[in-house]
Nucleic acid binder design. Structure first.
Lengths: 236, 236
DNA sequence: CAGTGGTCTAGACCACCGA
DNA sequence: CGGTGGTCTAGACCACTGG
């Protein structure tokens, strides 16, 4: 027994994880039962249970009540594409962030927009369009529609001080979000606003955020392809 | 008290999550101590501990030993952009998947490639290029370099039966990965291979996977922008 | 049916924090 | 110091799975 100072449940986790990562136990193979591990390590069942449960949460193993625990089929590692604030992101890179508000208004929702926001057609909706710059260079064109029920004072916000993402996160803590990322050429207007050629491909992220009962907002983010990329890293 | 049949720890979680999502407790506010919740719900401390611990893992609250539990500052919700197999993905959509191998060879690593794979310049490297089709339509051009140390038999694999992603996951369980997603126009060759116009923007994902000590492979995936998008959804 | 994991209890000792 | 969370035990009952 390696009597290290690690908590017991960590030792059990390390043991199982090691066997899997070294390939001793392949995908689909059975993992020893809790009772077996309990005996092997001389710890209580709660402790073994915690270890294996955490491995299940991490996606390394799959548990089925009454059947047992097996090594997960696909070592599906997942990354975090977080809902981040562009302001923080740019500051983290050590650059300066600027905002240029192009449109800030109340609209009447057409059928499509109403559908997205969970409203009736013709109901008022807040609409903003702004360009975010990094060291003076346009980095992001943000076209956003906001549900007044979720942020009644959206039009009065000073977007020189904060950003829509940050404001909405504070105003209405989000409970759900869905996004889609695609590649597209900018429209003539978008190209002009981002100061790029119409032939320059862009990343377009459309994101819909939900806060409690309300759809909070629907945003379309256009990033110049030559200036921006989504990056991520993840490990076991 | 909703005396539902939910497990006790779920009820505690629901209570705390509700208070946070309704805005009763704002970011930075203290969450009742385990002892307090224990009394309030009349359950053991282990049960309360589990509830709050899981909320911490989910990022809703922050715990500091000796100090207490507070509502997390930024409700940073994260999604899972998983390392998935295109084959499974297409089958899940109920379509048929096909593969067309264009190149399968051994190369000598140039300086840049050697750097990426953690090898010396001039060392042999496996190289494959293939097109994946969905119902006969080209969906993905995959250009991949593989470290022979991680998958010695890569050249002998029958990619009519499996895919590089699946094979490598089985061969060398991955421990780490990093990716970058950008928008770009295809080269003349890429456009030809995907049967698209050169002016059609594409999503380009570059992914580097690590398995234990070795960099397993570096892959460049080109997706036609009009035919593919990354999607995700996540909730509290 | 026996074996598995899911949940729970009523204690316990410890490390840590703030006053 | 008292209060907090981190960990652990030795039991227990249950729901589910498989043969």
């Amino acid at each position: 027994m390696p009597h290290s100072k690690l908590p017991a449940y960590q030792q059990v986790k390390a043991f199982v994880r090691g066997r899997i990562m070294q390939g001793c136990w392949r995908a689909g193979d059975a993992v020893p039962s809790e009772a077996a591990l309990q005996q092997q390590f001389g710890v209580s069942r709660m402790t073994v249970n915690r270890a294996v449960k955490e491995l299940a949460v991490e996606g390394l193993v799959t548990r089925v009540q009454g059947s047992g625990t097996v090594v997960a089929q696909l070592h599906r590692i997942s990354s975090t594409l977080a809902v981040r604030d562009i302001h923080e992101e740019i500051l983290e890179r050590g650059h300066s962030h600027g905002t240029q508000v192009l449109v800030i208004e109340t609209q009447r929702a057409d059928a499509v927009l109403a559908q997205w926001l969970g409203l009736q057609g013709g109901e008022p909706v807040f609409h903003s369009v702004m360009v975010h710059t990094e060291d003076g260079v346009p980095m992001l064109l943000e076209d956003r529609h906001v549900n007044p029920a979720a942020a009644p004072d959206y039009l009065k916000v000073d977007f020189g001080t904060t950003t829509p993402t940050r404001y909405l996160l504070e105003q209405a803590p989000l409970t759900e979000a869905s996004y889609s990322i695609e590649a597209a050429l900018p429209s003539a207007q978008e190209a002009r606003r981002l100061a790029i050629k119409r032939s320059e491909p862009c990343l377009v992220m459309t994101r819909r955020t939900v806060s409690g009962q309300h759809v909070a907002s629907v945003a379309r983010h256009v990033y110049p392809g030559q200036r921006y990329s989504f990056r991520g890293k993840f490990e076991l």
